[in-house]
Amino acid sequence: MTSTYERRGELRGTMDENLELNTSQKLMIFVLSMSLFGLSNVILEIIPDVSIGPVDISVAYFVFVPLVMVALFSPFWAALGAPIGEVIFTDLLMGDFSGLAEIEGIIQMFLALYIAGTLMRNPRSKAQIWIGAITVVVIDKFLSAAVDLSKVWIGVEDAEFVEGLPQSILLLEGIGFGVDIIISGILFGAIPAMWLIPALYGKIEPLLGMRPRQPGDKVNGGAQSVWFVVSAVFLSIAAFFFAFLEAWDVEVGVIDSDLREQYGDTFLLVSVAGIIVLLTLVWLISRRTQRRSASPSKD
């Protein structure tokens, strides 16, 4: 019976070869990312936070969860779903919503995940997974530090002239930054993701009716205009950060040279270098995507 089977009906639709996602696929990625990252945050909520003095050494988030999503699916929708899931599940539903501050969080996390997702072109490359995990934490924490600093800068009159204030804020942010890179970025980011992404690759996509992402695929789900928005938002926040550092730079010169200054200088150099690297990356990637979209393969 099987051997004599032959389709009689006229073939009307074939396999979808183009990679444009349809609305429901976008929605599925979004909802899945939202649910899973939301869930992982609720689980973290259950564990008590450990903090030594002002330094919180608890797990900020399970980075591997959204990282798997942006690595395996369209980064745009996965990156959008995750922070919204966090806000909804842990803040809104548990009665802990804090208004505008949530929007900051969403933008930071979205940018961090989206950029990490576009950097990871091959879901099976271990090196790219590491880069992705670290990128998420670096960008997210950098932006949140920038926001915190700018709050001080706007909130306090002539903040840069207040003795010790900028340094102390930077110090606390800096320590938190280091802790988060190690705990969230590596222990709960890169290491689990290195195992989970290959394990799920090729298994989870068919459940949503999609083809696994191939190394050469163009990053879809976001039009080029998205890149424009991303760059614009990112640049404006970076500009803010620069402005703060600039203002503070004057101050650094006045302080006597001692260990503190060295620390501050190093931090400053690292930050500036980091931002330059990031900006270059954003620029390079957006150029590459543009060129790709301009190529004749797509009409």
Binding site: V162, E163, G164, L165, S168, L171, L172
Partner: peptide, 25 residues
Amino acid sequence: ETFYVFIAAWLFGGDTQTVIALVEL
């Protein structure tokens, strides 16, 4: 929270000015 920031600021040579700035924030 404010206290922690103050301690850190004090380490960097902060003074009453710093305290007031922190109160503002």
